[in-house]
Nucleic acid binder design. Structure first.
Lengths: 332, 332
DNA sequence: GACGAGACTGCCAACGTTTGCAGCAAGAGT
DNA sequence: ACTCTTGCTGCAAACGTTGGCAGTCTCGTC
């Protein structure tokens, strides 16, 4: 069905090798025949067979991307930037969604590993030892997690958290409640630690509720717990939880941004759709994706050389919107 | 690096053909040797090379999915269900995002067509003639669009629209404003027509604003236009526009659900995150995805037989939430 | 005019898998 | 004892591409 090298070769009265060279290594072939071949190839609509090429080169020109939940608005921007960067470099992207199902993470990654040259894993909960093993089999870059023996792109929440805590204090808050993400999530630990450090530094009292799944429904549950706690300020593990909290609180007649302050993390596109809009710690999703691709392609290029796996650290900052306001008991 | 058939064969003292048969066509080989081969293969961690297999079979066991915008919350559920169904059937899914860029749609689809067995296109704006041509090259299923010579899964908005119009009338509304989607979008035309039909039937006055891109920002712009029109009810092309409208109206101090009623289409997960929650016409996204996969795999199985391309039509219904309420001038 | 260099090009093997065909042994039927 | 069948296995070709090697041709040089 598809046009092959042989057909182009026949049409040009040359051998397949010449056609192959003309199209992939133009300097190696006479300028005149090359242009002729190029013309005929275009005319016939020739496109190299990935399978044939893969077989001999051992490469697939495809990278895999594993995310916990495409529906979580934090990920689409990352996916987009991964795809964009990959496309620039002539790579395709195979995406797998684990549906927040920890057990599937590894299985999916392994399945993918057979049809890709490298993997980008944004799956925070699998056992580190397994991940290290996986990283030995093929190049892997982790997003938002550090794993021994593999490159990673991580978010440094400390700056954003510090700003958030300062922000709350300047509004007169004296305590804050952390709405935790999944217990075994690497980034949950990072965020909790960053918050704890910032609180300790600035003298803000910290409580914790949870864990909650990063989903709006869980946020709603968190809202009710939050109300029975005595905190007028909350920082959520991510925007989804924060949005669920806001939605539920508003539904119950509370004024978010006046009676209670809510801060999210990720600064996903949804932050601006609610009223009040969500104050959130901005995470540079686009950079995250493209940095991950760059790191991975570096590893692919190095080949067998032992490159010390790099960690790229991305800064965060607070974006203040309407969901945070003066503490209720504080003087106006 | 990877374990090949030949290595398994050597370890078992049989030929590669026997190993191949043992693993793909177990009946053709002696039970005893088969179990031995299976054991050794597992031990060695053998996994068939997709490239080798593709080369001889001509199939890739991969399907392509083109969507206009992963970040649009309407699509993730579809993507998930496509992936889930495909995975059940041992297919991988290659996703491409056109970023709402019409010119890229075809190019991306063509690029994908070389590495997949079939395509699912949820890209509403490309020229029909081009799409028909594409459908001649390989099996294609269209989502939310009918194209000659290809299968499709479409949404039948009429029922949902009818319910929406009845709903508005029962609340005392006498006119409604349609916030149109992209002019060349097939589903925009479907939705507009369905709305017009429903309005004509029930005697509701219809106006139209737009077109607007299916994005929150565009919805905000729509909100301001809507305010200067004199309609107390609006039905948007999709939830994103509706959410943008709500967000902007609320920001400008209007009470959505009291002073003005807003209805979205898609019933995306976001519908429940705002306050008030968004009344929306529910579209069965999961069914949409799995139906598309089923249709495509049917086409793949049929092979060269001329199957009359099928169109699957999915019903919609109205989900009433807080964003719609009694018309302001109507008696209470 | 012979020779070597250089520029192109063709031949062929290899990648890993599947599959039609042939070969082989063992058992059944005569 | 002979053939025929049956069940199993190996051989070899094919899929489309790449790249090492060798061959051809032309041209410049001595």
């Amino acid at each position: 069905m598809a046009v092959t090298l042989a057909e182009v070769a026949a049409a040009c009265n040359v051998s397949t090798s010449t056609v192959s060279r003309a199209l992939t290594d133009p300097d190696k072939v006479n300028a005149e025949t090359r242009t002729r071949i190029e013309r005929v190839a275009r005319q016939l609509g020739y496109a190299p067979s990935r399978a044939g090429r893969s077989l001999v080169s051992g490469r697939t020109d495809t990278i895999g991307l594993v995310v916990p939940d495409i529906a979580n608005p934090f990920f689409p921007p990352i996916i987009k930037s991964v795809q964009a960067r990959a496309r620039d470099k002539r790579y395709s992207v195979l995406i797998a969604d684990t549906d927040e199902h920890v057990a599937d993470e590894l299985e999916l990654a392994r399945g993918l590993s057979r049809q890709v040259d490298g993997l980008i894993l944004a799956s925070p909960r699998t056992d580190p030892a397994e991940l290290t093993r996986l990283a030995k089999q093929l190049p892997v870059v982790f997003v938002n997690r550090e794993v021994e023996g593999a490159g990673s792109v991580v978010i440094d929440e400390s700056e954003g958290m510090s700003e958030a805590v300062e922000h709350l204090m300047s509004l007169g808050h004296t305590r804050v409640c952390y709405l935790a993400g999944p217990r075994r999530s690497w980034s949950n630990q990072q965020r909790r630690d960053a918050l704890a450090a910032a609180c300790a530094e600035h003298g803000l009292e910290l409580r914790e509720l949870g864990p909650f799944e990063p989903q709006i429904q869980a946020g709603m549950r968190a809202a009710d717990l939050l109300q029975s706690a005595e905190s007028a300020a909350a920082i959520a593990y991510d925007d989804l939880i924060a949005l669920g909290v806001m939605s539920r609180l508003t539904e119950r007649g509370m004024q978010v941004g006046r009676e209670i302050s809510v801060i999210g993390i990720d600064d996903s596109p949804l932050s601006t759709v609610t009223h009040p809009m969500l104050t959130s710690i901005h995470v540079p999703a686009a950079e995250l994706g493209s940095a991950a691709v760059d790191l991975l392609l570096d590893q692919l290029r190095e080949g067998e050389d032992f490159t010390t796996p790099t960690t790229v650290r991305l800064e965060t900052r607070l974006v203040i919107r309407g969901s945070t306001g003066v503490a209720p008991t504080a003087p106006r």
